[in-house]
Design a protein around this nucleic acid. Structure first.
Lengths: 161, 161
DNA sequence: GCAGTTACTTAGCTAAGCTAAACATTCGCC
DNA sequence: GGCGAATGTTTAGCTTAGCTAAGTAACTGC
C-alpha cells in the first residue's frame, strides 16, 4: 500500500481514498448505536433481542431444526441450544425429535410464542418507527430502498473467509 | 381458538398497514445480523466491538469524562467503568482525575490505543467493505445516502421516553 | 458392524449490559 | 463553617450472549 502522506494524516487519507471502507465504518457504527437504543425497548417486551430474533425465525419459518436456526441466526450451535432452551422454558416454543432422524430437533412456536412475538415486535418497533416518522418522506424513502440492500449484504458469504 | 392462518394474516396486516413500522422492524433485524457478522472480524482485531467503539470516541473526542463517554455510547455508568478498565488494562487509554473536580475522571487515548484503533478499524471494515464492493454502484450510492439518515435516527431523542 | 460424519449438548470461559448501593466530592444554604 | 443534597464514579452481583473444546447419540458407508 503506497503512502504518500505523513503518518498523522494517513488514517484520514485511508478513509478518504477508500469511500467504500468509510461507508462500511459508518454503517458498522450506526448499527451498534441503533441496537443499543433498541435494546431498551426489547427489555420492555420481556424478551432480549436475540431471543426475539430467533423466535421470529421459528414463528415465520415453521418447524425448524436447531442447525437451520443456527445458520439463519449466524451463530454457533451451542448458542442456539441456549436460546431455544430459554424460549422453551418460557413456554414460547416446543422441541421435538424428528422421528426419521433422531439426531435432529425441530422447534415450533407455541400460540403464546406467536402472540408474544407479535406484541413484543409491535412494542419494539414503535420506538424506532417513531423516530422514522420524524424524518422527511424523502429520507424515509431512501431508507426503504436501503434496507433490502442491507439485508442482501448481511446474507452475503465471503469467498475467502 | 382462531386458526394459525387467521392470526398470521393479522400480523401481516398490521405490518402492511404501517409501512414505517415494517421498515423499523427490518432495519432492526438487519442491524442485528450485520453486527453478528462483523463481531468475528472485531475478534480478529483483538478488541471486542464495544471497546473499539468507546476507544473511537476517546481517540477522536480528545480527553473525555466517563459520564460523557457513557452518554456518547448510550450505556449506564457501570458499563463504561468496565469498558475503560479493560482498555486501560491493555494500555490503550489512561485515566486521570480532574484537578478542578476530583470526582470526574478524564480518559485519554495512548499512542498505542490510537494505533490499535486505526489497525482494528481497517481490519474490521475490510470484511464489510468487501461485501459492499459486491454491490452495484447504484446500490452502494443508495447506502451512501442512507447512512447519514441512520446516524440522525440513532442520535434522535424521544420526547416522551 | 465398525469408522467416520452429523446434530446437538455440556462445560467452562469472556464480555457486555443492567440495578442497587456505596463512596467521594462538590454545591447550596443557613 | 458545617450539613444535607446532588453529582460522578465504583463495587457487587446478577443475566444474557457468544465462543471453543469436548462429549454423546444417531445415522451412513464400506
Amino acid at each position: 500500500m503506497p503512502s504518500k502522506r505523513a503518518r498523522g494524516s494517513r488514517r484520514r487519507a485511508a478513509a478518504a481514498s477508500d469511500p467504500t471502507a468509510a461507508l462500511a465504518d459508518r454503517l458498522h457504527s450506526a448499527a451498534i448505536h441503533l441496537l443499543r437504543r433498541l435494546r431498551r425497548e426489547d427489555d420492555a417486551s420481556g424478551l432480549p433481542a436475540p431471543q426475539l430474533s430467533a423466535l421470529s425465525v421459528i414463528v415465520f419459518g415453521g418447524p425448524v431444526t436447531l442447525g437451520q436456526l443456527a445458520a439463519a441466526e449466524q451463530v454457533r450451535p451451542p448458542t442456539i441450544t441456549k436460546l431455544v432452551a430459554a424460549l422453551e422454558a418460557d413456554g414460547l416454543v416446543t422441541r421435538e425429535t424428528d422421528p426419521d432422524d433422531r439426531r435432529v430437533v425441530r422447534v415450533t412456536a407455541t400460540a403464546r410464542g406467536a402472540k408474544l412475538l407479535q406484541d413484543g415486535r409491535a412494542r419494539r418497533v414503535a420506538s424506532l418507527a417513531e423516530s422514522l416518522r420524524g424524518l422527511s418522506a424523502g429520507n424515509r424513502a431512501t431508507l426503504e430502498r436501503a434496507v433490502p440492500i442491507l439485508e442482501q449484504v448481511v446474507r452475503r458469504e465471503h469467498p475467502f473467509h
